[in-house]
Computed example of a mutant assay.
Amino acid sequence: MSNLFWLSAAQMRRIEPCFPVSHGVPRVDDRRVISGIIFVIRNGLRWRDAPKDYGPHKTIYNRFVRWSRLGVFNRIFAELAAKGGRSERLMIDATHLKAHRTAASLLKKGLFPRRIGRTKGGLNSKLHVVCDGQGRPLVMLLSEGQMSDYKGAALMFDAIPDAGTMLADKGYDADWFRTALKQRGIVPCIPSRSNRRMPVGYDPTVYRLRHKIENMFGRLKDWRPIHTRYDRCAHTFMSAICIAATVIFWL
């Protein structure tokens, strides 16, 4: 197939340090299997429909699940994003990801939570993201759909890198968030909620740049398994998001 996806040798050299050490029998070709994982996720295929060029589909699936449990794909994303350099402007926002009926179960089974919640729009998950001034994701968090924006910001706050300005919409208009940003030397550019008695000023010219994080969400959701969640396990779904973000923005 002429439209197959293959990681280049240079791309493999960038991500190989994050791979687990192989013990005993050598692993199947990493480039072939990882390229197959990316192809399946990017095109929203069933694992059994993976092209034969990538090898047995069970090998691709087993590698994806095993490395997801080890946090390998999350680590690849985090390390490449950390090498992106300091950005003077950050943006923070969140988006809902609809849970398909194959994944939409509120019953908690197993050690880890599913990260699926109930909102007026049905069962869904929520992706919280901090990105740089170019709209490239730096920090990501998966939560239940009903979690508020500023609660997600509180969970990610320690991981937010230093910057000059933070852009956010009205959902992040909280006094504690503004104060915490200022204590770190970050100027908040956040419009006030309509019910705030004393509106807080912001720079509308700078705020117009916030469309870049919305564009980032749109590019992530071009990958069908990201737009609609099919994975029952949160760790595999988050791994798929990290793979998409890495391939689109950091490789």
Rank of each mutant, 00 (worst) to 15 (best):
L142I: 11
I241Q: 12
L251K: 04
R46C: 09
V25R: 14
D203N: 15
E88N: 13
Y172M: 02
A50I: 03
D175T: 14
L45S: 11
T205N: 10
T179F: 09
R13S: 15
R48F: 05
M12Q: 02
W223K: 09
G24R: 04
F19T: 06
S105R: 08
L107D: 08
P188Q: 06
R178I: 11
L97H: 08
I213S: 00
F77A: 07
G121N: 04
N215A: 10
V129T: 15
P161S: 07
I213R: 03
A50K: 05
S194P: 02
P225M: 12
H227A: 15
V65E: 03
I160E: 03
Y172C: 04
A103S: 13
H96K: 14
L142P: 12
A180I: 00
V65C: 03
R224A: 09
R197K: 14
I34H: 05
R13G: 09
V33S: 06
N62F: 04
F217H: 02
Q146D: 10
G185C: 11
D162M: 07
T228H: 09
A10C: 01
A245F: 03
L181E: 09
P225Q: 13
N3T: 11
K52P: 02
R46G: 13
L111Y: 02
K120Q: 09
K83P: 03
L106S: 13
G110K: 03
H23S: 12
G122H: 05
I226L: 11
H227Q: 15
S194K: 14
G171A: 05
Y150D: 00
R224E: 06
Y207D: 10
L138M: 10
L70M: 12
R63L: 12
S143P: 00
F237N: 09
I226Y: 10
R232Y: 04
I160M: 14
R196A: 10
G36M: 07
F112A: 15
W223V: 11
W223Y: 14
A180S: 13
R219I: 09
M156K: 07
G145S: 02
R63D: 09
G133T: 06
H23M: 11
P199N: 14
L7G: 02
V247H: 03
P137H: 10
D162E: 14
Y202H: 12
A180Y: 00
I15K: 09
A94K: 00
V247I: 15
G117W: 06
E214Y: 08
V65L: 02
G110M: 05
N62W: 08
G185I: 01
L123P: 04
W47C: 01
G122M: 04
S148K: 00
W47S: 01
F112Y: 15
G201S: 14
C131Y: 02
H23D: 04
G122S: 01
C233E: 11
R66S: 10
S8A: 08
H235E: 14
S8H: 05
P17W: 10
T165L: 08
M238T: 10
G110R: 05
G218K: 08
G135P: 08
D169G: 01
H96R: 10
D231C: 06
G117N: 07
L90N: 01
A168D: 04
A245N: 05
L141H: 11
S105C: 14
L141R: 14
A82R: 13
V139Y: 01
D149H: 00
N3Y: 13
R219H: 09
I190R: 05
M91T: 07
A234N: 01
L97D: 07
H211V: 12
N74T: 12
